[in-house]
């Protein structure tokens, strides 16, 4: 046995007397959401993906007249950039973070604490929403400086759509990030991001895509979110049934699948 005198020097008797118990739920949720939000905002690659690329596109497409656009350019660009921002953080960022968190044993580490499993998921959702809020504020302020005039009647709808988009993309991000090896998650998440940006109805409206593709795009979460955000923020229109159903559908199906397939390591 170890020398008792040395032990007593460093650790007074009773120091480790068991006093187990679960922490308060609110405190656990706050601690986890705060940690995950801080990590997402501190990670250089994540910030590039979630803020810098959308910002560059917002400023670039608004000020450089390379692509022809109808009406005030910033009004046309902003809804699409917001859709991109939501996809970047909720899908690509979330998937990559989860893939590497699994690799580094974080999920297992947290699953071994008193943190209930549902709270583990809830903490990530709250963190994803916090990042989306930061994105909305930063992109909204920059767009306003560029002369953005969103339709006031559509602002509430736009918020609802952003929530739905975060839900749909977040569920798909967890589905991807929870299923594959970290490197594969990284590759797939970036490829999907790029494909959806170019051909998924975000950079280009479905109308300017080839006929067959245009139909498909309205059923993708990217196309549904970008088009309905445009309708809300440019025309002040309530979203139709289809985009809402598409976003809800992807979210529910992705979430249910993820609940079955997500692995701790």
């Amino acid at each position: 046995m170890t020398a008792p005198d040395a032990t007593q020097d460093r650790f007074a008797p009773g120091t480790f007397r068991p006093a187990p118990g679960r922490g308060r739920l609110g405190r656990m949720l706050a601690a986890q959401a705060r940690t995950e939000t801080a990590l997402a905002l501190r990670n250089g690659e994540q910030v590039l993906l979630t803020l810098l690329i959308p910002l560059a596109l917002l400023v670039g497409l608004t000020t450089l007249r390379i692509v022809p656009m109808p009406g005030p350019r910033v009004d046309f660009v902003t809804p699409r950039v917001l859709a991109l921002a939501v996809m970047s953080s909720a899908f690509t960022g979330q998937a990559i973070a989860l893939g590497f968190d699994r690799r580094y044993g974080v999920i297992k580490r947290l699953a071994a604490t008193a943190l209930p499993r549902w709270l583990l998921a809830a903490g990530r959702v709250v963190a994803a929403l916090a990042v989306v809020v930061v994105q909305l504020v930063v992109l909204g302020v920059v767009a306003a400086l560029l002369g953005w005039h969103p339709a006031a009647a559509g602002l509430g709808w736009a918020l609802l759509l952003v929530l739905l988009g975060t839900f749909a993309f977040g569920a798909l991000g967890v589905l991807l990030g929870g299923a594959l090896r970290a490197e594969l998650v990284l590759a797939v998440a970036n490829v999907v991001w790029f494909v959806l940006l170019l051909a998924g109805g975000i950079a280009l409206p479905p109308g300017s895509l080839p006929a067959g593709l245009a139909e498909v795009v309205t059923f993708l979460p990217s196309g549904a979110l970008a088009e309905s955000l445009r309708a809300a923020l440019v025309d002040g229109a309530a979203p139709g049934v289809q985009p809402v159903a598409v976003l809800l559908g992807w979210g529910v199906v992705g979430g249910l699948l993820a609940a079955r397939t997500t692995r701790l390591t």
Binding site: A19, P20, G21, R22, G23, R24, R27, M28, A30, A31, Q32, T35, A38, L39, R42, N43, F100, D101, Y104, G105, V106, K108, R109, L110, T113, A114, L115
Partner: peptide, 22 residues
Amino acid sequence: GGAYPGVRAAEMLRLVAACAAN
């Protein structure tokens, strides 16, 4: 082990501590 790759040592321990009553 097991921790977020980017988490600071104190942050990680505080997170786990927040899960306990005492």
